[in-house]
Amino acid sequence: MMNASDSSKDWADGVHELFKTHQVDIVSFVPDGGLRRLIALCQADPGMHAVTLTTEQEGIALAAGAFLGGKRAALLMQSSGVGNCVNMLSLPRVCNMAFLSLITMRGEWGEFNPWQIPMGQSTPTVLEACGVFVYRVDTTEDVVPTVEAALLLAFQSRRRVAVLLSQKLLGAKNFARGDK
């Protein structure tokens, strides 16, 4: 099975290109192994603001400010971060702002850490309860088309949209088995 730390190499470049094509200039994140390459690409891009957050809800308020100022932002996080976002999601919702998040899933396919499972199980339900459209991706070839569809829905139809990158796609890390 693919190691989680480098599993984004097959799609991260495509997503970074999409961000550039769709003028997503501000990318904020609380890191995850599955987002490693995409984060590195955004950090290395002089045309982007790559913003490391202390908690995921900061990224929602940041995206709201960017939208007010006429710029597009995206928030990258792990499924465990979704629980930190619930009240702040009221901001883009009540203000009818575009909002896009890419979320790497833990706590599902082959998960070895039971502490990840509660938010893994709750993530799509919590997001939908907060009025967020949820797209799920299970295969590498579907990542770029799904993120592009999400970009269009978010910024052209001005909706709140999350793309869940499944653990089946990313590969489950297993420290108990000796994965790095």
């Binding site: 308020a61 995206a63 400010g65």
Partner: peptide, 19 residues
């Protein structure tokens, strides 16, 4: 803001980066 408690400074950061 009428809600989003804890978010004001980050809304400001987003605006400052965008403008």
């Amino acid at each position: 803001l009428w809600g989003a408690m804890g978010g004001a400074a980050m809304v400001g950061l987003g605006l400052a980066l965008a403008q």
